[in-house]
Write a protein that binds this DNA or RNA. Structure first.
Lengths: 347, 347
DNA sequence: TTCATTTACGAAAACGTTATAGTGTTGATA
DNA sequence: TATCAACACTATAACGTTTTCGTAAATGAA
């Protein structure tokens, strides 16, 4: 009924615990006879070594702690599925902690997991952490010899392995595409500057304009408050965007830094009687379900979350398993790809 | 540098390990003086007991294993976030395993976690498990005294706590709403019968028709193959639905058993020149991002995934913490709610 | 026969905790 | 002065492993 242990097998077969352990490991110290007997018994009763005891003994858990700001979030889940894939392949288990964009939850989650439960962290910092700029928990973890891999929302001041999306380049490509399609009044719908990725994507927008000799105009940039993303405030988002479009009727393209902004913009534009894509072209960022199922379907910058997760897990596991030498810290950049759909098609 | 342990504190302060342990627990056996000294030291160097050692000693890990078929999936992530919320409140950690709809991965994931890593499971079985009808892993787990809570995709043959969505009632309400709006030729877009939830929602559709004295017609039912949901086969889905709508021009409403079917249907209908909602009303199932951001936004049956997850975690933790008596198995039904949006508005 | 070597196993320590059961010193009581 | 309790600790076992070291018995060589 209850879990079988070495001790119980030993008692049952009237041998010592050591003999059982060694037999199961096929140690030549034990006679062929005894080995077979023990192995048969263990198999029959489906013996499995206790993971916790092994973790304690080996001082490693073969477990990775992943901390993300949100789980009801397409991009983060793709990353997690990438992490899980390679972790599993390499015999690791994944523990997930959610910060819910809160600094405190991020810290307590890390502290809880750091006390022996895991061998290393993969994490993307919460929005609040970015605002506070308090990274002591990350520093401490690294100083205590617990490897950390940061992804997507990374921190320049922290030295560790990192995996990032090339936000700037992705945004630039998106805008270049719009320019090539003949658009000249390209609006940017973005976040406030303290949101790292928003900032990077904004700079990509600027680079593209610059490269093609188009003047940057503040008038064409809408920076939306973070709070508008919260549950129940979609109305604010809507009206903000609608007002913006109404007061800038000459806009012939929109680059939005995420799917929601892009879809909301498309809806607002439609309400104002603009045809998409003939009168207005739209590009978003993040290839989630929304882009694919929108009408018209949305051209967007795919971030390859799965690859990002895979890479993060590879970096971490490599570091965990090299105990002889410490590989130098790396920052891997995952390239984006522009997925063209109906919202930018010609005609 | 490395992790602080009781032993190290003991050595440092020149007392025994027991004294340190008891001091930290404020045991009256230890003199006030010593207690303060130890606690000060522990605080200064930020001592945290090793979770693994505690787990081994207490034979409980304060960890819940959650196994879901997919993580890039809105509904499942809402459930996980509900689980995580109450788990955290009650001092539990969550480990996530993904079955990716595969029976084998489900089994190995469970076996791996069952060996001491967790105190109980919360899971939704994979599609393949439903097809195979092989539930030995669930039975074994329960027989070994490891509590299991099944959610959403549950198994009648397995005796354990369960949390389910009232699929039938939810579907029925949705269809009743369409009937009340004056629709008489209501189409159903559903899955094949072996998908449990598809079947239940289909029966809700039938109940509604029956209750209002409308004849059920096979002609108005489209059962879509599972494979069409795979990456890259969206085209098949599209053309299947389009053909269906084209050959049934009298349809004035659609009830689809998930968001994707509903959106795809809306798109196809629009392509055929049907106005939504004036000529065709549409209701989906699952209140995900798609419904909210669709154009027109989609009326849908919300499953309250968060509450479902919360309830599942509560059931499990209750069972884990009652060691004196075993509460009888419960099946909690989480009610659905129809969220009305543009796709069914009058006029 | 004696000593060395091999064979086949067992004892014990260790990982970091906690809980139970000692133990030596002090001070009070009979 | 002997006894006893209270005090303030320490030792030990236990959780389930693995691994190093130790050791009887059997074998082989001299």
């Amino acid at each position: 009924m209850q879990k079988l242990t070495l001790k119980k097998i030993a008692r049952e077969l009237d041998v010592s615990i050591s003999t059982v352990s060694k037999s199961l490991k096929d140690s030549p110290e034990i006679s062929e006879d005894t080995r077979q007997k023990v192995k048969a018994f263990a198999k029959l009763y489906n013996y499995r070594p206790n993971t916790i005891a092994l973790s304690l003994k080996n001082r490693k858990t073969k477990t990775i702690g992943v901390i993300i700001p949100e789980i009801v979030h397409h991009f983060f889940t793709t990353v997690v599925s990438g992490i899980e894939k390679v972790a599993n392949e390499k015999g690791y288990t994944v523990i997930i902690g959610l910060s819910n964009e809160s600094f405190d939850k991020e810290v307590t989650n890390m502290e809880k997991l750091a006390n022996g439960s895991i061998d290393g962290f993969i994490l993307s910092v919460s929005r609040e952490t970015q605002l506070k700029k308090d990274y002591h928990h990350l520093k401490e973890s690294i100083d205590h010899g617990m490897p950390v891999v940061l992804f997507d929302r990374t921190i320049p001041e922290i030295e560790c392995d990192k995996v990032v999306v090339d936000d700037t380049q992705g945004a630039k490509n998106a805008v270049l595409k719009l320019i090539s399609s003949g658009c000249t009044n390209i609006a940017l719908i973005t976040t406030e500057d303290h949101v790292n990725v928003g900032k990077l994507r904004t700079s990509g927008y600027q680079h593209a304009l610059e490269e093609r000799g188009i003047d940057f105009s503040d008038r064409l940039v809408l920076k939306l408050k973070d709070e508008f993303n919260e549950e129940g405030l979609e109305g604010q988002l809507n009206s903000g965007i609608e007002l913006f479009l109404r007061s800038n009727p000459d806009i012939d393209a929109i680059f939005a830094v995420n799917e929601k902004y892009a879809l909301t913009a498309m809806k607002a534009a439609r309400a104002l009687g603009k045809q998409i894509p003939s009168e207005l072209k739209v590009v978003g960022f993040t290839d989630g379900v929304l882009s694919k199922y929108a009408t018209p379907s949305l051209t967007t910058v795919s971030q390859h979350g799965i690859q990002l997760g895979e890479k993060a897990a590879e970096l971490l596991i490599r570091r965990l398993e090299e105990d002889d030498y410490e590989p130098p810290y790396q920052t891997v950049v995952v390239e984006t790809r522009l997925i063209e759909r109906e919202s930018t098609s010609q005609g």
